[in-house]
Amino acid sequence: MRQSLRDKIIAVCDRKIAQKGPNVGLSFYAFFANRNDDPALLMEVATWWIETHRLDHFEKATKIRGLVLAGM
């Protein structure tokens, strides 16, 4: 996954955790605007989330942040 996307995911996770606490869940759609203006980027995250890590639709932001920081 490209570094700019990793940075965005970490920033979104940090913001959500700060707002709602460490148990907040999110889906990969949390990293995008409500309209699909970059389908290739959406598919990159979807592939990482669904195919690579076989994550559930909603996962804890702390888990996603940890995976990204670990370079997974």
Rank of each mutant, 00 (worst) to 15 (best):
A70C: 00
L26Y: 03
N23F: 10
F31G: 04
S27F: 01
R35L: 09
I50E: 04
E44Y: 00
N23I: 03
M43R: 15
R2A: 13
D38T: 12
P22S: 12
R6A: 15
R54I: 02
R15N: 08
F32G: 01
M72H: 11
A46N: 07
G21P: 06
K60N: 04
G21L: 00
D38I: 09
K63Q: 07
I64W: 00
N23K: 13
L67V: 06
D14L: 02
E51C: 01
L41Q: 11
L42G: 10
C13I: 08
A46R: 12
G25N: 15
S27L: 04
D56C: 10
A18Y: 01
A40Y: 06
K16G: 04
M1R: 13
G25I: 13
L41V: 08
L42P: 07
W49I: 02
Q19R: 13
M43L: 14
A40H: 02
A61D: 04
R2Y: 12
A11V: 00
H53F: 05
I17C: 05
R54M: 05
R65W: 05
N23R: 13
G71K: 09
L55R: 08
V45T: 04
I64Q: 02
G21R: 03
I10Q: 02
F58A: 09
C13N: 00
E51I: 09
V68T: 05
V45K: 02
H53T: 08
G21N: 01
K8E: 14
I64L: 02
G71S: 05
R35K: 13
T62F: 00
A70M: 01
Q19P: 04
I17V: 11
R2K: 15
M43F: 05
L5C: 01
N36Y: 08
F58M: 13
N23S: 11
R35F: 10
W49Y: 03
A40N: 10
T47G: 09
G66I: 02
G71M: 04
A18S: 15
S4C: 09
